[in-house]
Design a binder for these strands. Structure first.
Lengths: 206, 206
DNA sequence: GTCCGCATTGAACCAAGGTTCAATGCTCCG
DNA sequence: CGGAGCATTGAACCTTGGTTCAATGCGGAC
């Protein structure tokens, strides 16, 4: 999302794609259209898309199935559903799975744009969060396996002595690993380490 | 939820209450019925209710409004909606607000019971979480103001020396406060303190 | 007024963390 | 083979944390 956001459209009806594109480009967005979930998944344009507007019922993968695929990935794309024959159970499932909204055709332009703006706001939020952690995640990746293991013990609050016993090595070795990992991560205190690892999803040992 | 869970029903149609009560008591649940949101809110039976089955459209407060009231309280009750004239936007709003499910009348017994069981599972989860933190919260309440302040500095990763400077006192004083607060909380390591305070919502200093 | 809880301080001691110097053994890669 | 990166260890030293003993001053409760 450099400056102008790009909306991904996935719908098997060409007329619908055309109508949606018209509304969204009029609002100043870039648009990438796809005729099926499969086409989106293999598309290279995909990386530039900031949020998705999905038809639920399509031949091949349905919108809900595509959403499920996407939640497995790290760069979670916010999804707005748009459907002709939606029902309540379907909308419940979609929202529980994290969809930003679930709209029905024919859709009012105002509602569509409101949903897309909400999805973009969510996309920005996710990206900010991701960027904030990117540097730290990168530094974490430079740790050796042993350093990572020591880190996991440190953030459980164990003493060097205990860590050494758990890993079957000497306290001095632990001190060295610990010194190196704090230097690599740029975090000296245990408190900072615990907070950072919690945000990165690094689990404590035991 | 001592042993037999109690389901709260809120619906303005007496016939519906009766039918729901029959299905739920047959499943072995206790049932408390209320004819309106207001009746539930002032009811004393309320404390014993483990989850709610709410009609959406009722005179006075609607189910959605009642749900909103409940989310402000600390003991969040899981809610299952049940409605005659529900639509998709309404279901989207309800699920976004945290409802367990959104069902339509006439409801199939199987679906209703599945939703109620899911709501009760959620209730147990919430209660377990609450209980796990209750003891700690109680111990936290026994800290003196100064000890709490020192705690907030400790969980930011500051050294005793720095804390002493920040609070305008001596390092020895900080050591004493620190010793007392770790004893009161039963948490010795900084890592444990950070984790616990994060779960309790205690913010670090600065 | 007196007692109690709270905050404070100093001295002293031991345990643990952090750092530096010096060194060994291993494996993988070019 | 030689070198790079990794894991390891010992020794020594300093800083910080944790604990104990002893003591003072303040404010509110009884």
């Amino acid at each position: 999302m450099s400056h102008i956001p790009t909306i991904g459209l996935v719908d098997d009806e060409p007329g619908m794609l055309k109508a949606l594109r018209r509304v969204l480009t009029a609002e100043g967005f870039h648009v990438r259209a796809f005729a099926s979930a499969a086409e989106f998944l293999r598309g290279e344009d995909r990386a530039q898309v900031d949020c998705l507007v999905l038809d639920v019922s399509m031949p091949g993968l349905t919108g809900l199935e595509l959403q499920e695929h996407l939640t497995r990935e790290d760069a979670r794309l916010p999804v707005v559903f748009l459907t002709g024959q939606g029902d309540i159970p379907m909308s419940v499932r979609a929202i529980k799975a994290g969809a930003v909204n679930f709209l029905t055709k024919p859709v009012n332009d105002t509602d569509l744009l409101a949903a897309v703006h909400a999805a973009l706001a969510e996309a920005r939020r996710l990206q900010d969060e991701h960027r904030a952690l990117a540097g730290l995640r990168q530094r974490l990746a430079t740790l050796t396996p042993r350093e990572r293991e020591v880190l996991r013990h440190v953030i459980t609050g164990k003493l060097n002595k205990q860590i050494a016993a758990d890993l079957g090595t000497s306290e001095q070795t632990i001190k060295i690993h610990r010194m190196r990992l704090t230097a690599k991560l740029g975090l000296t205190s245990v408190a900072e380490l615990v907070r950072a690892m919690e945000r990165l999803g690094v689990e404590p040992a035991e």
